[in-house]
Design a protein around this nucleic acid. Structure first.
Lengths: 197, 197, 197, 197
DNA sequence: GATGAATGAGCTTTCATTCAT
DNA sequence: AATGAATGAAAGCTCATTCAT
C-alpha cells in the first residue's frame, strides 16, 4: 500500500465524506463513520479537518469549484446558447447519475443545513465559483442576443431550481424514466423560458 | 384560559413544531424545545405524537393538504392558464413571505431529510394532495390547448423547482428585491416554457 | 428509599462532587464518576447542573458561605480577639480533619484552576461570603484596640496563607503531629503577628 | 543557529513548560503546546522527557533547587535574622514579579495536582533543596537567640503559607498595591510571629 | 536526533423516549 | 391528561504517547 501524501489523504476523506453526507445526511453521518470508511482512526481524522463543520464547508467549496469548471468548459465552447443549455443540462444530469454525491450534497446538505454553513459561507461565498460561471453564461447569452435580458436571479432560479427539482425527483426514484430521457424536453423548456423575445 | 380539545392541542403543537423545524432544522430542534414553545411538558407531548419522526410526517401531510387546497381554488377559477400560472406563483410567494415556515419546511426539512420520511412517505404519498392538484393544473391547461402536451415531471420539476429555488434565494437573503418584484417575470418564464408551441 | 426533592438531590451531588474533586482533582474527576457516586445516570446529572464548570463554581460558593457562617459565629462571641484567633484556627483545623473535602477543595481546586473559575468568579466574587467575614474580624479587632491597624491583605494573607499552608502539609501527611497539636502555637504566632504594637 | 547540546535543549523545554504550566495549568497545557513553544516536534519532545508527568517532576526539582540556592545566599550573609526575613520576603516577591512562572508553578501546579507528583515526589522529596534551606534559616535564628524555639512546621507553614497567600492574591490581581509595597509590613508580621519571646 | 501522522481510550454533553406519580 | 426526573446510548472532539521514516 503506497504511502499517501497529506493532500491525498485529505482527498480521500473528502471523497468518503461526500458519499456519506449525501446518502445519510449531515447529522446522521458521524465522524466515526467517516473515519471507518477511509480506514483511519477518529483521532487522525482531526489532523486533516479540525471539525465536522469545517469539513462540510470545504466540501461545498470543492463541489462548487468542480461544477464551475465544468460549466466554464461549456461556456468556452463556440456553440449557440441554445446548445449550451443542452450541454449544461446534460452535464448536470450525467453527474447526477455518475457522481450523485456531488449534486445530492449540494441539494440535501448545503441547501438545507443553514446552521452548518452560516459561519463562513454567508451569502454565496462558498459557491461563488459555480454561481460566477452561471452568471457568465447568462451575460454571454444576452450579449449574443440569444437570451432575453432579464434579472439574473429570475434566470438563475429557473435554471438551477429546475435541474435541482429533477434530480430530487430522480433521487426519490419517482421519475418513471432515466434522467437521460428528460434532457431534451427540459433543455427546450429552459430555452423557451429564457430566449430572446 | 379555555380548555383545549385534543385536536386543538395537536394543532398548537403542529404550529409550533413547524416554526421550529423550519427555522432551526429537524435535528437541531428538540422535543423539549417544542414542548416549551407550546407550554406543555415533554411527557405530555408524547400523548399527542408518538415520536419526533411521526410529528415530522404529519407536518408534511398538513402542508401538502394546505397547499393543495390553495391550488385547487386557483384551478377552479374561470381564467386562462397563463393567468393561473401567475396566481400560483403569487400565492406561493405570498405564503413564503407571510407563512414562511410552510414553504421552508417543505424545502429544508422534507426535501432534505430522506431518512426521516422514508418510512411512511415513500414516493410522494405524503405530498400527494399537493402533487395531485398540480397534475390537475397541467392536464387542464393541455386540455384547453393552452399548454404544450409534455411529460408531467418535466413540467412539474420546472414549476416547483423554480419556485423553490427562488424562495431559497429569498430565505438566504440573497435576492436584491422582495419576492413580489419577481412575480411577473417568473410567471412569464414559466408560461413561455410550458405554453402550447 | 424516600423520594428526594430536587434541592435534596442537588445537595447529594454537591456532597459527592466535593469529595471527588478534592480527592482526585478537578480534571481527574469525571462526570460519570460523580454520577456513579450519587447513583444516578450521567444524563440526569445534567438536569441538576448544566456543566462541570458550573458545578465547580456552585461548590466554591457553597464552601465560602459555609466557612463564612462558621466565622460569623465566632465573630459574634463576646471574647477577646486573641481568643477569637484561637477559635478560628481551631474551627479551621477541625474542619480539615472532619470534612477535609471543603478545605481541600478550596486549596486544591479553587485556588489552582483559574481557567475554571475565571468566568463568573472574577476577583473574589465566589468567596465573598467568607472574605467579608474575615474583614469583619480584622476591623473589629482594630476597633477594640487589640489588633495593629494594618492593611487588610497583609493580615488576611497571613491568616489564611498560614492556615492553608498547614492544612496542605497535613494533607501531604508531612506533619509529624495531628493538626490539633499545632493549634496553640499557630494561634500564638498569628496573634503575635497581628496584635497591637 | 548554533546547535544545542542535549542539556541545553532540556533547559529550553523546561523553560517553556514552566511558563505554559504556570499560565494555563497542567491539564490544559498539552505536549504539542510545549513542543510548539520550543519549536520542536512532538515526537522529539519524548527524546528529552519520557512523559508529561516526569517533566512536571523535574520542573519542581528545578524550582526547588533554584529557590534553595537563593535562600542559601541570604542565609550565608552576615546579617540579623530580622534582616534575613526581609531579604527572603524581598527575594520571593521580586521573583513573583520577574519570574512569576516559578512561584506560580509551585503554588498552582505542584501544590494542587497531587496525583501527578505522588509517584516519585512523596513527602517533600522533590522540594527538599528548598525546605532544607528554610530549616537552616530557622535553626540558625534560634541558635543566635533571635527566634523563638518552636516546632519547624509551625514556623515553616507561617512563612511559606503567608508568602504563597500574598503571591496568590497578587496573581489574581486582587491586591490594590504592587507586591513591593507589602514587603515591609509582611516582614514585620513574620518577625513578630517568630521572634524570641 | 528529528518528524508528525497515527492511535484509541476517554471526556463532556445531548436528547428521544419512558414512566412513576 | 399532565408532569418532569430519569435513562443510556451515542456524538464530537482531545491528547498522551508511539513509531515508521
Amino acid at each position: 500500500m503506497a504511502k499517501l501524501t497529506k493532500q491525498e489523504r485529505r482527498t480521500t476523506i473528502i471523497s468518503a465524506a461526500l458519499k456519506l453526507f449525501s446518502e445519510k445526511g449531515f447529522y446522521i453521518t458521524t465522524i466515526p463513520d467517516i473515519a471507518k470508511k477511509v480506514g483511519m482512526s477518529v483521532g487522525n481524522f482531526y489532523n486533516y479537518f479540525t471539525s465536522k463543520d469545517i469539513l462540510a464547508k470545504e466540501l461545498i467549496i470543492y463541489i462548487s469549484e468542480y461544477l464551475g469548471k465544468r460549466i466554464r468548459e461549456i461556456n468556452d465552447k463556440d456553440i449557440s446558447t441554445e446548445k449550451k443549455i443542452y450541454e449544461i443540462v446534460s452535464m448536470y444530469f450525467n453527474m447526477a447519475e455518475e457522481r450523485p454525491e456531488m449534486i445530492e450534497y449540494f441539494l440535501r446538505v448545503y441547501l438545507s443545513n443553514r446552521e452548518v454553513f452560516e459561519d463562513g459561507c454567508e451569502g454565496m461565498i462558498c459557491v461563488s465559483a459555480f454561481v460566477t460561471e452561471m452568471m457568465m453564461f447568462f451575460d454571454n447569452g444576452v450579449e449574443r442576443d440569444e437570451l432575453h435580458n432579464q434579472d439574473f436571479f429570475s434566470a438563475f432560479g429557473l435554471f438551477m431550481g429546475y435541474l435541482g427539482g429533477m434530480v430530487f425527483l430522480f433521487g426519490e426514484k419517482i421519475l418513471p424514466e432515466p434522467l437521460e430521457w428528460y434532457k431534451e424536453s427540459i433543455s427546450q423548456n429552459i430555452y423557451n423560458a429564457l430566449k430572446k423575445r
